[in-house]
Amino acid sequence: MIRVLIADDEPLIRAGIRAILTSAADIDVVAEAADGREAVRTVRETAVDVALLDIQMPVMDGLTALAELRRSVPGARVLMLTTFGERDNVLRALGHGSAGFLLKDSAPGELIQAVRAVAGGNAYLSPTATRHVVDTISAPEATARAEEARRRLEKLTARERDVLALLGEGLSNADTGRRLHASEATVKTYVSRILAKLGCDNRVQAALLARDAGLRPGGV
């Protein structure tokens, strides 16, 4: 059973998210919080597999709560909720180590899929939100990001680039292993090496680098 915390300052939003998540047989909402400080305290005191945090909250916003959780509960898996107008916050959340982000108006099935992915140790990048972020990056900024990403990827071996390309497509370790005809344990080892070489805290950051560099699966 996946144990979830929902943190949002709007009771109706929390109720809606709870209704969606509890409709899945493998998900249990074990706690709710109305602000970031309460969310951090709850994760410290309660066994939670995924903390679902709204970016905009009173007392302590979601980004501050995320940073605090990364310091005090390093193993916490956090999925951020955002809206279209918060592109900079999305990038900051990923930089702070969020396992992914999801738009508040996403389909119910996508919310369940995201929680399952993050609980399983994988990243989840909302396709709609990802397109929004990419579309709002200026051409010079996008070019600079692509050049920096390609420079960083030069450290990787050909096999590591294959693994990163599939990671950038959102595949799990198991799915990547099937595509590369390798064991899940082997892929996990590759992912650890990739994160270390790229200086990334998590799979999401590495996946964004792959996308910035235009890395695509080739022949796998």
Rank of each mutant, 00 (worst) to 15 (best):
D49Y: 08
A51N: 12
A51M: 09
L52G: 07
D54A: 10
Q56L: 15
V59A: 10
M60V: 04
L63T: 05
L63K: 02
L66N: 06
L66F: 07
R71D: 07
S72V: 03
S72Q: 07
A76I: 05
A76H: 06
L79C: 04
M80D: 12
M80K: 07
T82V: 07
T82G: 04
E86V: 13
R87E: 14
R87H: 13
D88E: 15
D88K: 14
D88N: 11
N89T: 02
N89I: 08
V90A: 01
L91E: 01
L94A: 00
G97I: 01
S98R: 02
A99I: 04
A99T: 05
G100V: 00
F101Y: 09
F101Q: 02
K104M: 10
S106G: 06
A107H: 13
A107G: 07
P108S: 05
G109E: 11
G109A: 11
G109M: 12
E110Y: 01
E110T: 12
P127A: 06
T128N: 11
A129E: 09
R131N: 15
T136H: 14
T136V: 10
T136Q: 10
T136M: 08
T136P: 04
I137N: 05
S138E: 13
S138V: 09
E141G: 13
A142F: 03
A142E: 13
A144C: 03
R145S: 11
A146E: 14
A146W: 12
A146R: 15
R151L: 07
R151P: 03
R152A: 01
E154M: 07
K155V: 09
L156P: 03
L156A: 04
T157W: 09
R159A: 12
R159H: 10
R161Y: 04
R161E: 01
